[in-house]
Design a protein around this nucleic acid. Sequence first.
DNA 1: GTCTATAATTTGATAGAC
DNA 2: GTCTATCAAATTATAGAC
Lengths: 195, 195
Amino acid sequence: MSTGYTGKAAEILDAAENRIRAGGFNAFSFRDVAADVGIKSASVHYHFPQKADLGKAVVERYTATFLASLGAPDDPAHTPARRIAHLATAYRISTIDRGAICLCCVLGSEAADLPADVADALRRFFRQLLTWTQTALKTPGGHAAPGLSEDAARLGANQAVSMLQGAMFLSILLKEPAHFEDAATRLLALDFVKG
Amino acid sequence: MSTGYTGKAAEILDAAENRIRAGGFNAFSFRDVAADVGIKSASVHYHFPQKADLGKAVVERYTATFLASLGAPDDPAHTPARRIAHLATAYRISTIDRGAICLCCVLGSEAADLPADVADALRRFFRQLLTWTQTALKTPGGHAAPGLSEDAARLGANQAVSMLQGAMFLSILLKEPAHFEDAATRLLALDFVKG
DNA sequence: GTCTATAATTTGATAGAC
DNA sequence: GTCTATCAAATTATAGAC
């Protein structure tokens, strides 16, 4: 699951991700992340010349890490229901449990005003997430649990990701972890998820 | 449905709302909104001394307008199902139809780094929205359509607002209006909504 | 209410030494 | 790779004239 970054570069990405998730792309400076890491801002520019480079790298590392945590969407050992439960767990671990909103939810809200590179990387994150979920729903698995049709799986993926995304947002903003848990429970109770 | 602002103050709020919805609280300056309105930045400060004042006023005006567009959640003439359909329509009109994300979704993503006044106003928006939806689900109406219990209505409101919020976000970001429509259709088809 | 002018600070980014 | 030093521009905000 290596994302290719080690040492100071990885520390810079960690700091930038935390800063972005707290206040967005325009709420942090090179000096902020430099101070977080214990270096000077000019050294941050050495690793990531422009702010857009840093933003794009943060999104792409986040995408790779999150997708990797989901595993294969078509593992025959798991039912579609179990895969969706796994998706909810990945959301919970990366957001609710650390009290920080999803990186791509923050940046997605600002997308119209972001460098094109960063906005494109963002859309790729969500397209991959939707594709993963669609595959998880349409691929049979477990003890002969059937999968959905291509079209039903697409609609189901849209609904599942929308629910998790919205519940995550409200749960973090209102500081009510139960909000996310209630929504996750109801997602898993939907007919097309139960199978 | 007067929000108390007229003339230049209202124009400033319009410009600020559009700017925030495109890029967030830190993506616009007093000079930006001044130029949008055709005045100088010092004149904007006359109407809203600090940036936090402007942000809070934008959120409170947005809250009043959006809540007013929803009408009464307990109108006996409407079934719970019809009220939820009305909620989806209000979301569609204020976001999808104009290609801009919800103001409070953008600001909510940055909440951890926002002036306390603004963040508080934001949370009030979502609490009122959740309360409206809960009341809409628990209050009987129409031709003897029964309402849900207090608890079922609370869980249903969480699910409904989460779905609409998440679908709106993805729909605008990916520029796929159909995404929102598909999610809204499925929301209205849920058992607890249909009644 | 709107303006000019400006203060004080921060920002993204670069040059060049070590 | 990291530093010091610095730049040009932008930012929030204020003082005071009209």
